[in-house]
C-alpha cells in the first residue's frame, strides 16, 4: 500500500499553464485516488468537455456519471459543472425552486441567467466553486461523505487564484446575510487542510515561471498549495559524458561515425552531421529541463514526474500515469 503525501486532502484542484496536460493529470490523479475501492468525483469547470474526450465518452451532461473503474475496484465519476446548472442547483437547494417551476423560468426570461453565467464571470466562478464545495461536503444518508475525494480540472495557472478566491472577494461585498455565509463556508473548505492545489508544469521556461508565480499568488491568498507535477519529462538518452559534450557543441563525431559503421550503416557525412545535430538538440533540451527543475526546487514543494508519452493519450496510458502518481505518493 502506497502512502499519500496528502492524506487529509479531499479536494484536489489541478491547475497548470495551457498545454501542460492538466486535464490528463487531473484524470490520472482521480484514477490514482480511486484505486483500491474509493469513490472519486472528477469535475471540470471550463466547459471544454476535456474529460469526456479523455475517457472517450459522449459529452458529459450536468450530471454525475461513472466514467471509469480504478484498479482494485474504485469508481471515478465525472461531472462537467456549468454555471447555469450550478445556479439552478443553488436555487433548488437554498430556495427550493424547481428548475422547471415558474420562478426559475421567470428568472431565465428576465436575463438573470445571462447575467450570472456569461456577463459577469466573477459571479459564475462563485457558482462553480460553490458547487465544488457542495460535492466535497455532501453526505450520504448514513452520514458518510458521498465522495472520498473530489478532483477538479481547474482553470489555468494564471486564473486559478482568482477563481478559488472569488468567494472571499464576494464575501467582502456583503457584511452579513446569506451571501456572506455561503462565501465563508466555501472559503473555509478551500483554505482548509482538506484542500490541495496541485500545479502541472513542463520543464520549459514559461510554464516554470508561471508555476512559480502561481504558487506565490496561491500562498498570498492563503490557499493550500499541494504538489508540483512535472509532465512530459524526457529521459536523457545519451550517456552523461556525451550529453555534456553535445550541449557544449563538442560531440565526438568520429566516435559516432565509427559506431554507425559498426551497426551496419553507411556513415556518410550528411547522415553523421544530421544525426549529430539531433543529438545536440536533445542535449540542449535536457539542459533546459535541468535548469527548470532547479528553479522548481526552490519552491520546496513535493514534486512528481510523469514521462513524455510518445503516443497519444489513451485510456491505457491514463492508468499508467495514475500508477506513477501513486508510486510517487501524490495519491
Amino acid at each position: 500500500m502506497w502512502v499519500s503525501d496528502f492524506p487529509g486532502a479531499r479536494l484536489h484542484v489541478v491547475t497548470g499553464k495551457g498545454g501542460t496536460g492538466k486535464t490528463t493529470v487531473a484524470a490520472a490523479l482521480a484514477l490514482a485516488i480511486a484505486a483500491g475501492g474509493k469513490r472519486v468525483l472528477l469535475t471540470e469547470v471550463e466547459g471544454r468537455q476535456g474529460i469526456a474526450q479523455l475517457f472517450d465518452t459522449a459529452p458529459l451532461p450536468y450530471e454525475e456519471r461513472k466514467v471509469a473503474v480504478a484498479p482494485g475496484g474504485g469508481d471515478v465519476y465525472a461531472l462537467a459543472i456549468d454555471p447555469e446548472g450550478a445556479l439552478l442547483d443553488y436555487l433548488h437547494m437554498f430556495y427550493r425552486l424547481s428548475p422547471s417551476g415558474i420562478p426559475a423560468r421567470t428568472l431565465r426570461r428576465m436575463g438573470a441567467f445571462e447575467f450570472a453565467t456569461t456577463v459577469a464571470p466573477g459571479l459564475s466562478d462563485v457558482l462553480l466553486t460553490g458547487k465544488v464545495k457542495e460535492a466535497v461536503i455532501r453526505k450520504q444518508k448514513d452520514g458518510t461523505p458521498a465522495y472520498d475525494a473530489v478532483v477538479v480540472d481547474g482553470p489555468p495557472t494564471g486564473r486559478i487564484t482568482r477563481f478559488l478566491n472569488i468567494s472571499h472577494e464576494m464575501g467582502g461585498l456583503a457584511k452579513v446575510g446569506p451571501i456572506k455565509n455561503q462565501s465563508d463556508n466555501v472559503m473555509a473548505v478551500l483554505r482548509s487542510a482538506q484542500t490541495a492545489v496541485h500545479l502541472v508544469t513542463l520543464l520549459e521556461e514559461m510554464p516554470v515561471q508561471e508555476t512559480l508565480d502561481g504558487v506565490a499568488e496561491l500562498t498570498a491568498a492563503q490557499l493550500p498549495v499541494g504538489g508540483v507535477i512535472v509532465n512530459a519529462v524526457r529521459e536523457p538518452v545519451l550517456p552523461a559524458a556525451d550529453l555534456a559534450a553535445a550541449e557544449a557543441g563538442r560531440l565526438d563525431v568520429a566516435a559516432l561515425a565509427a559506431g554507425l559503421k559498426e551497426a551496419g550503416l553507411e556513415p556518410d557525412e550528411a547522415l553523421v552531421s544530421a544525426l549529430a545535430s539531433e543529438a545536440v538538440d536533445h542535449a540542449q533540451r535536457v539542459a533546459l529541463e535541468e535548469r527548470g527543475r532547479d528553479s522548481l526546487g526552490a519552491l520546496q514543494r513535493p514534486s512528481y514526474e510523469l514521462p513524455l508519452l510518445t503516443q497519444a493519450v489513451d485510456l491505457g496510458s491514463l492508468y499508467r500515469l495514475a500508477e506513477l502518481l501513486r508510486e510517487q505518493g501524490l495519491a
Binding site: 538518452v237 545519451l238 565526438d252 559516432l256 559506431g259 554507425l260 559498426e262 551497426a263
Partner: peptide, 8 residues
C-alpha cells in the same frame, strides 16, 4: 558504442 546507439 553507447553514443551511436543512443543517437540512433
Amino acid at each position: 558504442s553507447p553514443l551511436a546507439s543512443a543517437v540512433l
